[in-house]
């Protein structure tokens, strides 16, 4: 993966396969690191699966329940001295907390977060997405988008309606740039 935004899209997409009703993504930019939380209320993983998650070569494809998305994310964070912590409970959900040190020579850029969040938001699985971004620059306001709130406004019009999708994309881009109207 060339940037963090692709990892975030990839790892958060696991919530779709986990039959989650909601996935929450939080990014916090700090002076020397970026912290990421990805939480879902999906089926969760047993201790056995959780142990396999970090090892892409553990078992054969036929019985494998996990892919290479998580191992790649772990590699990205650990090569900067950071980490990925995964907590999961069967029937409750999964919580991933990661840290990547941004000044390390092997750190990768944050990338196009707006496009990743947009693609998550328009998922065809009816999974709600709640995203929150705290910028390093304290002058830039915290940006949040919650599809539950969007769906309330839409009153039955699908998120995937073309004019709605265009608006969502522009809204996320403007929000991340700190250019939203105060409401």
């Amino acid at each position: 993966m060339v940037d963090l935004s692709l990892h975030i899209l990839d790892v958060a997409s696991n919530a779709f396969k986990a039959n989650a009703s909601c996935v929450q993504v939080t990014i916090e930019e700090n002076e020397n690191d970026i912290e990421i939380w990805i939480e879902d209320d999906g089926c969760g993983m047993s201790r056995e699966v959780l142990e396999q998650v970090t090892n892409p070569f553990f078992t054969s494809r036929k019985t494998r329940k996990v892919g290479v998305g998580i191992p790649l994310f772990i590699q990205t964070c650990e090569q900067t001295g950071g980490y990925v912590h995964i907590q999961s409970t069967v029937g409750v959900g999964t919580c991933i907390h990661a840290k990547m040190y941004t000044h390390h020579i092997d750190a990768i850029p944050l990338g196009d977060i707006a496009e990743s969040i947009f693609v998550l938001v328009i998922n065809p699985y009816q999974v709600d997405v709640h995203f929150k971004m705290k910028h390093k620059e304290k002058s830039c306001p915290v940006f949040e988008i919650d599809t539950q709130q969007i769906k309330e406004i839409l009153e039955g019009i699908p998120l995937t309606e073309p004019s709605v999708m265009s608006w969502i994309k522009e809204y996320i881009t403007a929000g991340l740039a700190g250019e939203l109207e105060n409401e």
Partner: peptide
Amino acid sequence: MKSLAELKKIREEAAS
């Protein structure tokens, strides 16, 4: 400027 109020308008247009 983008706002949620704008989405309401887009919703009405889409509904029609």
